[in-house]
Design a protein around this nucleic acid. Structure first.
Lengths: 147, 147
DNA sequence: ATATTATTTGATAATAATTATTATTTAGTA
DNA sequence: TACTAAATAATAATTATTATCAAATAATAT
């Protein structure tokens, strides 16, 4: 698997030991691509890795976030979810299905970046700016799409 | 206090009983204006209202959110915070001080609304769109300002 | 004003999500 | 291959929030 080798070097670069647990957990978040919670990650890896504990999943996710390999997203359901995308993108949060969908539009990104470039920002070092769209999914069997 | 009368009619309008607890809690969130958590609201009213329980604070805040009198904001610290502003505004989240600051700019609002007006939105009923800025406060004694 | 009734509240217990602790194991290096 | 600092598994503890239910209260009708 090329993916795992890739993750391995990401970990190394961050100065983290490339443990089996970290590889498996990082890989799971990337594979799942629906911004899973720690519990979701835990269940998804349980079958093939029954010895990895829930505590390790929590700690590892936190470590990955602290080292910039994952992003952490808070939802109003009260548990944290993890996002493998690190670029400046937005989210659509579907209040009825609790799905969290990535949203990115180049034009919007440019629009917003340009806007803030024109502004004077005092006493703040901006790390990221993102757009959050909250809404209801109409047909739960179809995908949500903005284009 | 004109404010309390105001809150009272808001509650009535929403079909909620205007109890002392609701008036006090709603008033506290408005007064605090730093998007307090349930615990923060509880401590802030404790001195003058020692009989209002923490459970009531939680339940009341939830009721106010469900009836559209308050908004609920999730932060990465893992507890919910409450926002008395109901208009479509954004937030600046200061990762170091954990402050949550309102942000609104008419021009940006128009820019974003116009952008989405031009888009085709499939299978989604948008409830609100907001901008979230994460960053670090440089001097913790001064205010953050974007202008 | 008083009685009625459905809601709300206070006190408390319970749950869910997350973090801490610590003995044991392991990755990276010598 | 041995060494050492860091990571993990198992478990306990903590924190934020929700549920339960008897007692209290706001709104309404009398």
């Amino acid at each position: 698997m090329q993916k795992l080798t890739n993750i391995k070097s990401q970990l190394k670069e961050a100065g983290l030991k490339a443990t089996h647990q970290r590889l498996v957990i990082m890989n799971a978040v990337k594979e799942m691509s629906d911004h899973p919670s720690a519990e979701k990650v835990f269940s998804s890896i349980k079958a093939n890795n029954p010895s990895i504990s829930l505590g390790t999943v929590y700690k590892t996710l936190e470590t990955l976030v602290n080292n910039g390999l994952l992003a952490k997203v808070a939802t109003r359901e009260g548990q944290m979810r993890y996002d493998p995308r690190l670029d400046n993108h937005g989210h659509i949060y579907l209040t009825n299905t609790k799905e969290l969908v990535d949203y990115y539009d180049e034009e919007l990104d440019t629009l917003i970046i340009d806007f803030f470039k024109r502004k004077r920002v005092n006493n703040l070092k901006i790390k990221n700016i993102s757009v959050r769209i909250n809404g209801e999914k109409l047909d739960s069997n179809k995908e949500v799409l903005i284009k």
